[in-house]
Amino acid sequence: MSAQANLQQTNQPLVLETRGLVVGYGGRPVLRDFNFNLRPAEVLCLIGHNGAGKSTLLKTLFGLVPRQGGEILLDGSQLGTVEPRGLTAAGVSLVPEGRGIFPGLTVAETMKMGLWSAGVPVQERSARLDWVMSVLPALKQFYERRAGNLSGGQQQMVSIGRALLSQPRCLLMDEPSIGLAPKLFQDLLQPIRQLQRDTGMSILLVEQNVKEALKISDRVVVMKSGAIIREALPEELNDNAKLMELY
Results as ranks from 00 to 15, higher is better:
I228R: 06
G161A: 14
G86W: 06
A213C: 08
F62V: 06
P103I: 02
L64D: 05
V206T: 07
D187V: 00
L46F: 07
L73R: 15
M113D: 11
G51T: 06
P13H: 07
E83R: 13
M113W: 03
L61T: 00
V220F: 03
G63P: 02
P66S: 10
G114P: 06
A147E: 01
R219Q: 15
R125C: 12
L165K: 00
E235I: 10
A241D: 11
I101W: 00
L180D: 03
A118M: 00
G27H: 01
G153H: 02
I203Q: 02
M223A: 11
E109M: 05
E97H: 07
D33M: 05
R230Q: 13
T199Y: 09
M244R: 08
G114D: 09
I160A: 07
P84K: 01
I192D: 01
A108C: 06
L139G: 09
G80D: 11
G86A: 05
Q155N: 12
K242V: 15
T110W: 05
L233K: 15
P29S: 11
K224Q: 15
M133Y: 01
L189E: 01
I192A: 03
D75P: 04
G119W: 04
L214Y: 07
T88E: 02
V122A: 14
A241S: 11
Q155L: 10
T56V: 08
V65I: 14
K224H: 15
V95L: 09
Q4M: 07
L44H: 11
G51K: 14
I101H: 01
R32W: 01
A90V: 04
L165M: 12
C45E: 02
E42N: 03
M157W: 01
V82F: 07
L46W: 02
I228K: 09
R162Q: 12
Q208C: 09
L164E: 00
R28M: 12
N238H: 15
V23T: 12
S126Y: 08
Q141E: 15
N37W: 05
E17P: 09
A90R: 15
Q194I: 04
E236W: 04
A232D: 07
V158D: 00
P96C: 08
E212Y: 02
V120L: 13
Q8K: 10
I192N: 03
R145D: 11
K140A: 14
L46I: 07
R32Y: 04
G80S: 04
Q68C: 02
I160G: 04
L74A: 03
G86C: 04
S159N: 10
M1W: 10
A118E: 06
L214M: 03
